[in-house]
Simulated assay, not measured.
Amino acid sequence: MGGILEIKDLTLQFGGVIALDHVSYKVKAGEIFSLIGPNGAGKTSMLNCISGLYRPSEGSILFKGEVITRYKPHKRAHLGIARAFQNIELFPHLSVLDNLMLGRHVRMKTGVLSGGLYWGKAQREEVEHREKIEKVIDFLEIEHIRDTPVGRLSYGLQKRVEVGRALALEPEILLLDEPMAGMNSEEKEDMARYIIDIHEEMNKTIILIEHDMGVVMDLSDHIAVLDFGRLIGYGTPNEIQNNDKVIEAYLGEENVG
């Protein structure tokens, strides 16, 4: 498969601090691609550049061959790039269903007036969007909490709903920023299973940030390693485990093998 996302010579600078330093790599369509590295390496900054929250100082981002470097976040979402955040960005007082419906906002075409009056085209569109959401609810096995306010849910379930809201956009690329952070072992296993199912059954390209190296090595097709904003390694899990620079900077001997 060809490259769906290409990062070319990307640099991100905040004053005198260089968060990303001339980073280049490609993500193939249909793969699970992981970004790893020590805290402060630039991983979340990279996702912020891809999703449009940050505008890089230099370099370019291409999505399916189209330069999107200066596109605003909503336009990238409309093109097919969705993000689940490390810090949950849900509305705690709204139900699971309402949070997922909000994830469909960039797909809605009716205006405020027709949507508010709820007739004709607006009503038909509402039904169509509800059908899409129902599929996400079934897929993530959250039917039993659909009407529950998100703020009442366990942390693990909130993270699942966060992923569901990103899936509600029907993205081609799903950006997952530490989806297993703060979870217990059972919740991690559940999330890993959902990531595999999203990849295989929904045929989504996934870009994953995760500190659990067991998960990364098991799930990833390719891995990019950042350290102080620089790309110090790229390859398959086996190649990364045997990369001397990566071992020295991040993995350490105890995590290899």
Rank of each mutant, 00 (worst) to 15 (best):
E89C: 05
E89N: 06
L90H: 03
H93L: 04
H93F: 01
S95M: 02
S95N: 00
V96L: 01
D98T: 07
L102Q: 01
L102E: 01
G103H: 02
G103D: 00
G103S: 03
R104W: 00
H105D: 03
H105K: 02
V106L: 05
V106C: 07
V106Y: 01
R107C: 02
R107N: 00
R107V: 02
M108E: 02
T110Q: 02
T110S: 03
L113A: 05
G115N: 03
G116T: 04
L117E: 00
W119H: 00
G120W: 00
A122V: 00
A122D: 01
Q123C: 01
Q123H: 03
E125D: 02
E126T: 01
E126F: 03
E128W: 03
E128L: 05
E128K: 04
E128Q: 03
H129I: 06
R130C: 04
R130W: 04
E131Q: 06
K132Y: 04
K132T: 06
K132S: 05
E134H: 06
K135W: 06
K135R: 08
V136I: 06
D138V: 04
L140D: 05
E141K: 11
E141A: 13
E141G: 06
I142P: 05
E143W: 07
E143N: 14
H144W: 07
I145P: 07
R146H: 06
R146T: 11
D147N: 13
T148H: 11
T148V: 13
V150W: 12
V150M: 11
V150P: 14
R152N: 15
L153F: 12
L153C: 11
L153I: 12
Y155S: 14
G156H: 07
G156E: 07
G156S: 11
L157W: 10
L157S: 11
K159M: 13
K159F: 11
R160G: 11
V161F: 08
V161T: 12
V161I: 14
E162F: 09
E162P: 09
E162M: 13
E162W: 08
V163Y: 10
G164T: 15
R165H: 10
A166I: 14
A166H: 13
L167V: 14
L167M: 14
A168E: 07
L169P: 11
E170N: 14
E170G: 13
E170F: 10
P171M: 14
E172T: 10
E172W: 13
E172L: 09
I173P: 15
I173S: 12
L174E: 11
L174W: 07
L174K: 13
L176F: 09
D177P: 07
E178S: 14
E178V: 12
M180F: 08
A181V: 10
G182H: 14
N184K: 05
N184I: 08
S185K: 00
E186G: 00
K188P: 04
K188H: 05
K188S: 03
D190T: 07
D190A: 08
M191P: 08
M191R: 06
A192D: 06
A192Q: 08
Y194C: 11
I195L: 09
I195F: 10
I195E: 04
I196Q: 09
I196F: 06
D197M: 12
D197I: 15
D197S: 14
D197K: 15
D197T: 15
I198Q: 06
I198F: 08
H199I: 12
E200C: 08
E201L: 15
E201R: 12
M202H: 06
M202A: 09
M202D: 05
N203G: 10
